[in-house]
Design a protein around this nucleic acid. Structure first.
Length: 207
DNA sequence: ATGTTGATTGGCT
DNA sequence: GCCAATCAACATT
C-alpha cells in the first residue's frame, strides 16, 4: 500500500484527473476504513488556459476568497465546499501553488466498509451509494470539516492509495456536468474522465 | 443590506 | 423530463 504523494498531485489538473481513475479513496471513519475506487473525475482550471467554470476563476477576478483560497495553495489538500443548500463536494487541489487547480471526485466503486456506507446512505440501493459527487461525500461522511485536509498523510482521516494504472483505452472523456451559466468554450471542454462501462459512474454517462 | 446562483439529488409527472 | 429543497458565498446596491 502506498499513499499518493504530494508530487502526484502537483501536476496540472488535466493530468491528475485521469490518473486518479482506479485509485483508492480511503476514509478513516472512527477507526474503520471506508474506501472506494475512483471511477469518475473532472478537471478544473488548466494552468495553460483559464477555466471560467472553475471557482477560482469565476469569482473575485481570479483572486482567492475565503471559500476558494485552498485551491490556490499547495497541491495535495482537500477542497470541500457546500452547494445547493444541502450538498458537499470533495475535490483534490492540484497544480502549482498560486494556481486555482483542482479535480472533483465525482464517483466511486465501493470496496471497503460497505456496511458503513449502507448506513450513511440509508435506504438507497448499492448502485446509488457513490455514483455522484454529493452521494460519495455522504457515503464517506465528508463535510466542511475536511476542507484543507492533507491528503498525502493519514492524520487527516482521508487519503488516496495507489493502485495499478488504468490503460487509456478504458478511459472515456466528455464535457463536465452541471456547469449551467458557464460560457463557451469551457462548458464544452471534455475535461470529465470516467472508466468506460463502469456501473458506478454518475448519471447515464457510461459509454 | 439585499438578491442571485449553484461542479446536485431525489421525488414526482 | 421537470422541479423543489435549502443556504453560503458571491455580486450588486
Amino acid at each position: 500500500m502506498r499513499i499518493l504523494s504530494q508530487e502526484f498531485y502537483a501536476r496540472p489538473a488535466r493530468l491528475v484527473a485521469p490518473d486518479l481513475l482506479g485509485k483508492r479513496l480511503v476514509r478513516n471513519y472512527d477507526g474503520q476504513r471506508i474506501a472506494g475506487l475512483i471511477v469518475e473525475t473532472e478537471a478544473y482550471c488548466d494552468p495553460e488556459e483559464p477555466d471560467l467554470a472553475c471557482h477560482g476563476d469565476r469569482t473575485n477576478k481570479g483572486r482567492p476568497t475565503p471559500r476558494t483560497k485552498v485551491m490556490f495553495g499547495p497541491a495535495g489538500f482537500g477542497y470541500v465546499y457546500f452547494t445547493y443548500g444541502m450538498h458537499w463536494m470533495f475535490n483534490v487541489v492540484t497544480g502549482k501553488t498560486g494556481q486555482a487547480n483542482a479535480v472533483l471526485i465525482r464517483a466511486l466503486e465501493p470496496v471497503e466498509g460497505e456496511w458503513l456506507i449502507a448506513r450513511n446512505r440509508a435506504g438507497r440501493e448499492r448502485a446509488d451509494w457513490t455514483n455522484g459527487p454529493a452521494k460519495l461525500a455522504q457515503a464517506l461522511a465528508i463535510d466542511g470539516t475536511l476542507n484543507e485536509v492533507c491528503l498525502f498523510k493519514t492524520e487527516g482521516g482521508i487519503w488516496i492509495e495507489d493502485q495499478p494504472t488504468i490503460s487509456f483505452e478504458n478511459i472515456s472523456t466528455g464535457p463536465r456536468v452541471g456547469l449551467g451559466n458557464t460560457p463557451e468554450p469551457w462548458i464544452s471542454k471534455p475535461w470529465r474522465y470516467w472508466l468506460t462501462n463502469n456501473r458506478f459512474v454518475s448519471g447515464k454517462n457510461r459509454g
